[in-house]
Amino acid sequence: MRQEHGKTCLDRAPKTALVIQWAKEHSIRVLNITGPRETKNSGLHNTALAYLRQLLKGT
């Protein structure tokens, strides 16, 4: 985790339990997700979607 523009950020895709704990500790209500384009990283969309589904199941 790091600070950017006065906000706490997660740099990578850590274990979902860590993200859930982090979100609760920082009262996260909106989660902005950014990353490279699928066109430049084949398969990225499916990987990200699977991760987010797993994350949302744990909330």
Rank of each mutant, 00 (worst) to 15 (best):
K15T: 12
L55R: 06
H45K: 10
A13M: 13
I33Q: 05
K24M: 05
A13I: 08
L18A: 11
M1C: 04
V19W: 00
C9E: 09
T8L: 10
R29I: 14
K40W: 00
A23M: 15
G35A: 07
Q54K: 15
G43V: 08
H5W: 07
Q54S: 15
T16I: 13
M1K: 09
L55Y: 04
A17I: 09
Y51V: 04
A48N: 08
L10K: 03
T47V: 13
E4K: 05
K15W: 10
V19F: 03
N46T: 03
K57M: 01
C9F: 01
A23I: 09
R2T: 10
N32L: 15
T59N: 06
A13S: 09
I33D: 02
G43M: 08
T8Q: 11
R2L: 10
K15F: 12
P36Q: 09
L55P: 02
L49K: 15
V19I: 15
T16G: 01
L31Q: 04
H5F: 12
G35I: 07
W22H: 12
R37H: 08
V19P: 01
T59R: 06
Y51P: 00
P36A: 11
K7R: 13
T39A: 15
N46I: 03
H5T: 11
N32Q: 11
H45V: 11
T16E: 07
Q3L: 09
G58Q: 14
I20D: 06
P14T: 11
E38F: 02
A23R: 06
E25Y: 01
N32I: 14
K7F: 09
L56H: 08
A48H: 02
L18V: 11
L56C: 07
H5G: 04
G58N: 13
S27I: 05
C9K: 08
I28D: 03
G6S: 04
A17W: 01
L49D: 14
V19D: 01
S27V: 08
P14I: 06
T34Y: 08
S42Q: 12
L10R: 02
K7E: 11
S27A: 15
Q3A: 03
G6N: 08
H26G: 03
L18G: 01
E25D: 14
H5P: 01
T47Y: 00
L18D: 14
T47G: 06
E4G: 08
S42G: 06
T8N: 12
L10A: 04
S42F: 07
K15D: 15
E38P: 00
P36M: 02
R12N: 14
G58S: 13
K57E: 05
P36W: 06
C9G: 00
G43Q: 05
T39S: 15
Q54W: 00
L31F: 11
K40T: 13
I28E: 02
R37S: 10
S27N: 15
T59D: 01
N41D: 08
T39F: 14
K24N: 10
K24G: 00
G58I: 01
L31I: 09
D11G: 15
K24R: 14
